[in-house]
Amino acid sequence: MSETLTTAPALAGLDPASAEVLEEWTYSMQAQDLSPKTIRERLILMRTVGREVGPLLTLTKRELVRWMAGKTWASSTRAQRRADFHTFFTWLQDEDHRVDNPAAKLPRVATRSVAPNPFTVDEINTLLNGGIYRRTRAMVALHYYLGLRVSEIARVHGRDINRATRTLKTIGKGRKEVTLPIPDPLWELAQSMPEDGYWFPNYVANKLFAAGEGHVMGNSISGVLSDAIKRAGLDHRPHQLRAATATEMHRAGVSAFTIQNGMRHSMMQTTTKYLLVEPEQIRAGLDLLPAVAIPSRSSRGHGPR
Score class of each variant (00 low, 15 high):
residue 100 D to M: 01
residue 238 P to Q: 03
residue 21 V to S: 07
residue 230 K to V: 04
residue 45 L to S: 04
residue 253 G to L: 12
residue 111 T to Q: 14
residue 29 M to T: 00
residue 60 T to W: 00
residue 193 M to L: 14
residue 44 I to W: 15
residue 129 N to I: 03
residue 198 Y to F: 15
residue 11 L to P: 01
residue 247 T to Q: 12
residue 29 M to G: 05
residue 280 E to S: 09
residue 101 N to L: 09
residue 255 S to I: 07
residue 96 D to H: 08
residue 118 P to F: 03
residue 18 S to C: 07
residue 158 G to R: 11
residue 9 P to L: 09
residue 79 A to V: 01
residue 188 E to N: 07
residue 96 D to C: 03
residue 71 K to Y: 00
residue 114 V to M: 01
residue 89 F to L: 03
residue 63 E to W: 00
residue 295 P to G: 08
residue 277 V to P: 05
residue 127 L to C: 07
residue 231 R to I: 04
residue 200 F to I: 03
residue 178 V to F: 06
residue 200 F to Q: 00
residue 43 L to S: 04
residue 294 I to Y: 08
residue 45 L to N: 06
residue 254 V to F: 04
residue 124 I to P: 07
residue 48 T to P: 00
residue 150 V to P: 14
residue 62 R to N: 04
residue 128 L to M: 15
residue 218 G to A: 11
residue 304 P to A: 11
residue 215 H to K: 06
residue 2 S to E: 14
residue 189 L to S: 07
residue 32 Q to T: 07
residue 226 S to Y: 01
residue 209 F to R: 03
residue 215 H to D: 01
residue 194 P to W: 05
residue 128 L to A: 05
residue 278 E to W: 04
residue 146 L to P: 02
residue 23 E to K: 14
residue 44 I to S: 08
residue 233 G to I: 05
residue 93 Q to V: 00
residue 120 T to A: 10
residue 252 A to S: 14
residue 132 I to F: 12
residue 200 F to E: 00
residue 132 I to Y: 09
residue 168 L to Y: 12
residue 172 G to Q: 05
residue 16 P to W: 10
residue 126 T to R: 14
residue 141 A to W: 11
residue 72 T to R: 05
residue 221 I to E: 05
residue 7 T to S: 11
residue 252 A to M: 13
residue 41 E to R: 10
residue 170 T to W: 03
residue 25 W to A: 06
residue 146 L to E: 10
residue 265 H to C: 06
residue 42 R to W: 09
residue 193 M to N: 02
residue 241 L to A: 05
residue 276 L to I: 05
residue 65 V to E: 15
residue 76 S to R: 10
residue 205 A to V: 10
residue 249 M to W: 15
residue 233 G to D: 08
residue 138 A to N: 08
residue 194 P to S: 09
residue 236 H to T: 02
residue 3 E to D: 12
residue 213 E to P: 05
residue 236 H to A: 01
residue 88 F to A: 03
residue 119 F to C: 02
residue 116 P to R: 11
residue 301 G to S: 12
residue 193 M to G: 01
residue 209 F to M: 03
residue 10 A to T: 06
residue 76 S to L: 06
residue 188 E to D: 12
residue 111 T to K: 15
residue 64 L to R: 06
residue 94 D to E: 14
residue 214 G to C: 04
residue 118 P to E: 07
residue 264 R to N: 12
residue 194 P to A: 02
residue 19 A to S: 13
residue 21 V to T: 09
residue 113 S to T: 15
residue 174 G to R: 00
residue 5 L to H: 03
residue 114 V to E: 11
residue 232 A to R: 03
residue 28 S to A: 15
residue 27 Y to I: 11
residue 176 K to R: 15
residue 247 T to W: 12
residue 132 I to Q: 11
residue 101 N to I: 02
residue 244 A to Q: 01
residue 182 I to H: 02
residue 132 I to P: 11
residue 249 M to E: 07
